[in-house]
Amino acid sequence: MTTAREIMSGGAECVRTDQTAADAARMMADLGVGALPICGRDDKIKGVVTDRDLVVKVLAAGRSPEEFPAGSLNQAEAVTIGADDDAEEVLATMTRHRVRRLPVIDGTRLVGMIAVADVARTLPHAKTGDLVEALSAD
Rank of each mutant, 00 (worst) to 15 (best):
G112R: 01
A83D: 13
D106H: 11
P103N: 11
P37N: 02
R121S: 12
V56W: 01
I45D: 05
A87G: 00
D84A: 09
G107I: 07
D43N: 15
P124E: 03
V33D: 09
R98S: 15
T50P: 01
V33N: 09
A117N: 10
P124G: 05
I105K: 13
G112E: 05
F68D: 15
T50S: 10
K46I: 05
T128N: 07
R101M: 09
T128S: 15
K44H: 14
D42G: 04
A70C: 08
K57F: 01
T93Q: 07
D84Q: 11
G107D: 14
L31C: 04
T108A: 15
I45T: 07
D118S: 06
R101C: 08
R101I: 10
H125G: 10
I38C: 00
G40D: 03
V99A: 12
A92I: 02
L123C: 12
P103G: 14
V48M: 05
R121L: 09
D42Q: 03
E66D: 12
R63H: 15
L36T: 02
L73W: 00
R98G: 15
L54F: 00
L73C: 02
H97D: 08
S72G: 13
M94P: 12
L110D: 09
T128L: 11
P37T: 02
A60T: 03
A60M: 02
D42N: 03
G47E: 12
T80E: 14
L110Y: 15
T93W: 03
M94Y: 06
E88W: 04
V132K: 11
V90P: 02
V119P: 01
S72D: 15
C39T: 06
V79S: 04
G47N: 13
G32D: 14
T50W: 00
I38E: 02
A83H: 13
E67L: 08
P65G: 04
L31D: 05
D130N: 15
T122N: 13
M113R: 07
A117V: 11
E133F: 10
V119D: 03
V33G: 10
L123G: 12
G62K: 11
P65Y: 01
I114F: 12
R63I: 03
L110M: 13
T128M: 10
L102N: 07
H125I: 08
I105M: 11
G71W: 03
S72M: 10
I81M: 07
E133K: 10
P103A: 13
E89A: 15
V58R: 00
D53N: 00
L131I: 05
